[in-house]
Amino acid sequence: MAGRRTSTAPDPEAEAPTIDPALVHLRPGRREILRQTLTTTLLAGASLALGGALYRPPGFEHHPSTSERQVRDFRVAPGPRPTVAIAKSSLDPAELTRRAISGLGGIERFVSRGDIVAIKPNIGWDRTPAQAANTNPRVVAEVVRLCLQAGAHRVVVTDASCNEARRSFQRSGIWRAAHEAGAEVILPAEHRFREMRLAGELLDHWPVYKPLIEADKLINVPIAKHHNLSAYTGAMKNWYGVLGGRRNRLHQNIHLSVADLATFMRPSLTVLDATRVLVRNGPQGGNLSDARDLNQVIAGTDEVAIDAYGASLIGVDATRVGYLLLGQARGLGRIDARDVVEV
């Protein structure tokens, strides 16, 4: 090839002007023909192979829903202890938390040495602790401390907030309190959600918040509040915070959604904060006069029983809360649990 292009400068010795060799029609050599044929064949073969591998026949594919219900079960073996312990009459939320958990047999029953523990408080709103829309940061911090004392390898505190997350985490006081207690506070981000099958009665495919399901133990630390649509929100409805995507559709059937989520997520332990609760304008509040000091913390392994008690605190009859009835019917717990102790 290189030989074809030679200088076009006229040769002073030649009498007639020479023809540029580049213009002479030259047939390719045998070697070149072979090379070209081989390349063409390979490319053609590769195109056909790639097309075949990627081929998809026309038509609309429908994946029928499987009936198998998905569960993320973090429960520990039931013991002879009570299922719900209520700690009252102290002005120190940390002490109330300690007492309530020790009433169940201590944190060691739920957290083993080397565990990765995920703690799910309610950090839904851009509200300060006094406004009682998020879990009390001192309750959260105490649960973190207890887990670390029990030898947890890592304690993660996180939630998928309703308002802007960083603001909600900072202004709720939970970011600082949990960090100081030694927890790893994870902020929600788009890449932390994964599409999952819940296979519930109502909820099927939803983005699920990964840090809450990638743990050995899971502790639910909600706050008891008034809720505009479901009358009361506490432990079971706190699992809204495990979903991403368009949660605003859930309200069309709030009770069945909550029941589905509580069936999907089975925590090791639930610690309900009722140190200060919203009695109206829930679930956000916003006004100090919307909240009341009750100075109680309730720990337990039965979310239905805990919520039934929590509902009574804000004057709501548990037997009229749809999701509690559904939860009881599904065997998630009992509204009238008998082994409730006051500690």
């Binding site: 851009d126 309703c162 809720h227 505009n228 649509l229 605003n248 309200h251 069309q252 059937n253 709030i254 304008n281 679930p283 956000q284 509040g285 916003g286 006004n287 919307d290």
Partner: peptide
């Protein structure tokens, strides 16, 4: 609106309304 036009419960708007009173 779902409650107005479709007899379906919703009121997420009320839940998110940040003022107090809403």
């Amino acid at each position: 609106c779902l409650p107005w036009a479709m007899a379906t419960p919703c009121t997420v708007c009320e839940e998110f309304c940040p003022t107090s009173p809403k």
